[in-house]
């Protein structure tokens, strides 16, 4: 399995990269290549041009902004994020999610933004970006815009990015003070994409949930919040609304059978992981 022919340009700057993307050819961006290369090798994708942003050191950052947000540049690898001490301290959900991606050998090359731009429905990072209310900074030769994570992931392998746009940075705001979190996934074989996964962030006030963010992935479609379950949680203590949460999941999820799992298993796992994750997040609330 060898890629079909394409041309390759190593972008010299962000401006150069977006200029290439605007050039009218069918172009794909490569950074770490861990999502794109299998697609190219299997000839499932056949761009005319591959734009390599891997040499843009200006995008190779993992740092804290003045406002206390975590900024992850487009070429920062998952391993870089995992190794960053501030990430473990301030964004433990993100660190846990990244630790669940593939294997160390994949994370050494795979980037946070690459995974977000690829949007595999079973991938960890789109769900993580949504639950952490990340903002995605997107640049093209026409404009620079920001897109909230919730509006980014429009369908399996589909995002709000237009063909001429480059995801240059993901911004993860600091989680609300005292928020509890949980990230859980189930995979038949360790290191594989999740059969089902869930990310939860809860804020507790006066003994009840004041704010709930609950995102499921691997259950069909793209990673998405389960608003009805969030609403059921809000204003209550989780143990009292467990049945309601289960009912909402039953009503909202419509996974399909595939070679890895039956729809029934996915529904069961989604329920179990969600209930466990909510309990864990609740216990972690300050």
């Amino acid at each position: 399995m060898k890629p079909a022919p394409f041309d390759y340009v190593a972008a010299r700057s962000v401006e150069h990269a977006v200029e290439l993307l605007a050039g009218g050819t069918d172009a794909k961006v490569i950074a770490g290549g861990q999502s794109l290369m299998p697609v190219l090798n299997m000839r499932l994708g056949r761009p005319e041009l591959v734009v390599d942003i891997g040499r843009l050191d200006v995008l190779n950052h993992v740092r804290i902004s003045d406002s206390g947000a975590l900024l992850v540049g487009a070429t920062a690898t998952q391993a870089q994020v995992l190794a960053h001490p501030d990430v473990n301290r301030g964004w433990p959900l993100l660190a846990t999610a990244v630790a669940n991606i593939g294997h160390p050998q994949i994370r050494n090359r795979g980037t946070i933004c690459g995974s977000l731009a690829h949007n595999d429905p079973a991938a960890e990072l789109p769900a993580t970006a949504i639950v952490l209310d990340a903002t995605l900074r997107i640049q093209s030769s026409r404009r620079i815009r920001t897109v909230p994570a919730e509006q980014m992931f429009v369908g399996p392998f589909m995002t709000a990015l237009t063909p001429d746009e480059l995801l240059v940075e993901a911004e993860f705001p600091p989680p609300p003070a005292g928020a509890g979190w949980s990230f859980r996934e189930f995979a038949t074989r360790p290191g594989d994409f999740a059969t089902v996964g869930v990310a939860v962030q809860l804020v507790r006030r006066d003994g009840v949930v004041a704010d709930a963010r609950l995102v499921l992935f691997g259950v069909g479609g793209s990673a998405a919040r389960v608003h009805s379950a969030e609403e059921a949680l809000t204003g209550s203590s989780p143990s009292r609304v467990e049945d309601q949460v289960r009912a909402q999941l039953k009503a909202e999820l419509d996974p399909a059978d595939d070679v890895h799992a039956s729809a029934g298993l996915r529904r069961d796992l989604a329920e179990k992981l969600t209930i466990d994750a909510i309990a864990e997040a609740w216990a972690r609330c300050a």
Binding site: T195, H260, A261, S262, G264, L265, D268, L269
Partner: peptide, 11 residues
């Protein structure tokens, strides 16, 4: 004996 099959056996 995948997770799906075991689930089916239980159900």
């Amino acid at each position: 004996l995948s997770p799906s099959r075991i689930r089916d056996l239980v159900r």
